[in-house]
Write a protein that binds this DNA or RNA. Structure first.
Length: 377
DNA sequence: AAGTCGGGGCA
DNA sequence: TGCCCAGACTT
């Protein structure tokens, strides 16, 4: 009888014997207890803190999250504290971390927990109804903070399973996710779901890495089908990424007053990219050729662009590289002496004391420019 | 199912 | 320079 894919056909995972899954479960957990990293959110059992860590860790590396996590938790240690502060005073603690929608959703969700759940994070299915809580975060918080026996799938788990099962389908496809979920339902240690889930992610983060996986150190090596066929590096299959685009910025720094003085900042629109974040006036979208030509001139080719706009003098503060999503940005930062270009406070912008910039939400690039200003006095 | 949404570190 | 990270939401 010919093999054919039907919904009733056993999922790939069901080809594994219970006995082998039980053995792999034990070696994975043993490895985890012996090798896990000491991370801040592994030192707490507080659902709020664990939830915060999971939100920060979305699409963001552990090392990048740690300082933000500690600063945020110090300022907003619990549901009641966070819920009692407006989003405007919370946003600055996310400045530079990226994906700013996450903190807006988290704040809204925590407010809902304060109002509708008496401040107690719900451990049941209602948790998944909160804004910003998707399939991954729902399973992560419920299993890690409440020991609810639900499996989870993140980028690490996708990689480990694609290799272990030698799955050549795109891991993001709904059908692949479904078969991974079915496999995990069998493999999951239901008495220690939180540890099991973290073990799988930890393995993906530290051993079963995207490139050069350390198979010799892997507790699943003997059973890994990709390793058996030397196919580790080919997996997992991910959807194609949009090609990156070069972008050139000219960033204008306007200062006034005694050092450290004030700088002129403008808020981004309340829609689209980095909504509501404050930034220096910026000319964006110059052609690479145009900026290259401008930068090639002396002392700064961008001055030519300024002259076209009636500005005669400017100091070059330096150049900066930055990346936002698929954009690779090269920026030239210019300081314009007043009154070369003197803006008036409007709803679109205002003077901000340098010591008070930290109270405004800003992005990673603005942060880099500000660091330059304080470093150079 | 595809597009949007940050930023950084590493081979 | 390309890759991808403890994803969720909108269309």
């Amino acid at each position: 009888m010919a093999r054919r894919k039907t919904p009733s056909e056993p999922e790939a995972g069901e080809l594994w014997k219970d006995e082998e899954l039980a053995r792999l479960q034990r070696s994975l957990l043993a490895w985890y207890y012996a090798s896990r990293r000491d991370l801040p959110w592994r030192r707490t059992r507080d659902p709020y803190a664990i939830w915060l860590s999971e939100v920060m860790l979305q699409q963001t590396r552990v090392e990048a999250v740690i300082p933000y996590y500690e600063r945020f938790l110090e300022r907003f240690p619990d549901v009641a504290t966070l819920a009692s502060h407006p989003i405007e005073s919370v946003l600055p603690y996310w400045s530079g971390l990226g994906y700013y929608r996450r903190i807006r959703n988290f704040h809204a969700a925590v407010c809902e927990v304060a109002e509708s759940y008496g401040g107690a994070v719900p451990s049941d299915e209602r948790f998944a109804e909160l804004p910003g809580v998707g399939p991954y975060t729902q399973a992560a918080v419920r299993s890690i903070a409440f020991q609810v026996p639900v499996p989870l799938i993140d980028g690490n788990v996708e990689r480990v399973l694609a290799r272990l099962l030698l799955c050549r389908d795109e891991v993001k496809k709904a059908s692949t996710q479904k078969s991974f979920h079915a496999f995990l339902e069998r493999w999951l240690d239901r008495t220690r779901a939180g540890d099991f889930n973290q073990a799988l992610m930890e393995l993906g983060a530290t051993v079963c890495t995207p490139r050069s996986p350390r198979c010799a150190a892997c507790p699943l090596e003997a059973s890994c089908r990709a390793h058996r066929f030397g196919a580790e590096e080919e997996l997992p299959r991910l959807p194609e990424r949009a090609p990156s685009v070069d972008e050139a910025w000219v960033v204008l720094v306007l200062r006034r007053g005694e050092e450290p003085g004030e700088v002129w900042l403008e808020p981004r629109e309340e829609r689209g990219l980095m909504q509501g974040l404050w930034e220096f006036p910026t000319w964006i979208g110059l052609e690479r050729r145009e900026l290259a030509r401008a930068l090639a001139a002396t002392p700064s080719g961008a001055f030519a662009l300024l002259r076209e706009r009636g500005v005669e003098h400017a100091y070059e503060l330096g150049r900066e590289r930055h990346s936002i999503l698929n954009r690779r940005i090269r920026a030239e930062i210019l300081e314009l002496p007043l009154p070369a270009l003197t803006p008036k406070p409007t709803p679109e912008g205002r003077w901000v004391k340098l010591e008070q910039v930290a109270e405004l939400p800003i992005g990673g690039f603005t942060k880099k420019v500000l660091r330059r200003l304080s470093d150079s006095g």
